[in-house]
Amino acid sequence: MTPRLQVRGLRKWFYSQRSERRLQVFDEITLEVLPSEFLTIVGPSGCGKTTLLRVLDGLIPYEEGEILLDGHSVVKPGADKGFVFQDSSLLPWRTVMDNVILGLELQRIPRRDARQRALQHIELVGLKGFEDHYPYELSGGMQQRVNLARALVVDPAILLMDEPFASLDAQTREIMQAELLKLWAQDRKTVLFVTHQIEEAIFLADRVAVLTARPSRVREVVEIKLPRPRRLEMKRTPEFLDHADHIWRMIQEEVYRTMARTGHDRD
């Protein structure tokens, strides 16, 4: 099967404006995401997970390597990618409807069609009746549903999700995980999902990519063979816990490595 997204030898630096210094974020990222695959990415804090998604979306440039989406090089953001941001990324001056419609509006799709499609997706994420509410009138969980609908409505080839549930309380978070999987099962979009939480990464994924500390590489891609549909009880099966333990160890190692290195770098 030809991959939906191919990332080969990606390297990136951030250049500071004031000094000569530059920060290498990616040493060498190589990664493939298959069509209809749910791939999650975990890694130590600050290793460049958000940066990776922004690069893949075409929001920021990279120095070396190649990014192919369905065989075409990614050069700029667009409707072929759907971005689900961390919290508070809804436009506060727009109602739920107008937030969901944003991507279609930017593409200049006629208002009528756009509304229709938006309405379908608002229903899909369970927010029917809240079209005219402003984001600040919604709970955190509801806001993230809108965030999701906004990305889905443009019917992207791939969904890029950056810790979308990070700010939710533990219960809401689990509910959202289950609902996301239910939604995903309907049309099996290709998903690249970044998270801090190992448990979340395993529960959602077909495969989990573990990143090293910065400058980061893909340290290992763990295949998760748990059957679907996933149920929350699976989080307590031995198989699940083995995965969790294995990934946790890798991330610990990476964290210790950074600590040791920053200890040396202080000069």
Binding site: R54, D57, L59, K76, P77, G78, A79, K81, F83, F85, S88, S89, L91, L102, G103, L106, Q107, R150, V154
Partner: peptide
């Protein structure tokens, strides 16, 4: 971050100006 949202959905500079 809101500017980035509009950019991520393919918004142009003019759209960023008027919509954010």
């Amino acid at each position: 971050n809101l500017i980035e949202v509009v950019k991520a959905f393919g918004g142009s500079r003019i759209q960023v100006f008027f919509k954010v």
